[in-house]
Write a protein that binds this DNA or RNA. Structure first.
Lengths: 121, 121
DNA sequence: ATTTTCCTACTAAAAGATTAGGATTTGGAA
DNA sequence: TTCCAAATCCTAATCTTTTAGTAGGAAAAT
């Protein structure tokens, strides 16, 4: 697994949501920042296919793309990467920083507590 | 604040640890992956200075570098970035994924529980 | 005093990320 | 079956990141 660049991740996020989509679907969901050209998006999808994050099948004259790597798989990898690079491999230390900074609501805290309870068993 | 590239972060991690250091100090702590050339590291430190992550003072013929941005400041920013880009801005969702994946020990869990207790007040 | 060493400043090139124009293909309508 | 609009394919320019060589100057060694 290799880290995605900013744009690649933006494209993958859309594809993870849509599951099966063509280039036009992705373009139409990108914000006007400005919106990149159709062929630009197409290039990213080709690259993501080379990196084996995507594959496609044909439907008439269109290519329908779909994810090969699932989002949870990537987010896990990505969090581990951050843990190793910024927190010396310590999950506890990452959690400490993040929990303190996140301004969790009381109900969020209760939910986390019951998640922790569950993990003890 | 702007994201650091892989190499930039590697350099900053060393400088955050050493606090005050010259180019040579950083070079000597980089692993042989292979180890980059002295001038390469120097270039990164110049760039990090342009980006205002570092500054330097003179000591004889050497430059002594020191951080302007502190590590906790950057890790916070970085976690927020990940939360927004991969978890749709939801801290709860990031925590859920991370806690489940982290294989926490029982004592880690107890520590987190008391941290959460503390936050309720 | 001259050579060597060490450090910085400058320059630039290779590799990767981002962007998009123009040529080509093709599915399906007429 | 011929033709067109729509989509892909190919190519390349630009920007960022990563890499390192060379020149110059100051201090240290001989």
């Amino acid at each position: 697994m290799k880290a995605l660049s900013e744009r690649e991740q933006e494209v993958m996020n859309i594809i993870w949501e849509l599951r099966n989509c063509c280039v036009e679907d992705v373009v139409s969901r990108l914000p006007d920042d400005p919106k990149p050209a159709y062929t630009t998006v197409q290039t990213f999808m080709r690259i993501l296919e080379q990196k084996e994050f995507l594959a496609h099948k044909r439907d008439g004259k269109k290519h329908i793309f779909y994810p090969l790597v699932e989002k949870p798989e990537y987010t896990r990898w990505s969090l581990k990467h951050m843990k190793d690079n910024l927190f010396g491999g310590s999950a506890k230390s990452l959690l400490n920083t993040f929990i303190r900074d996140s301004e969790l609501s009381d109900s969020d805290i209760l939910e986390l507590e019951s998640l922790l309870e569950e993990l003890k068993r």
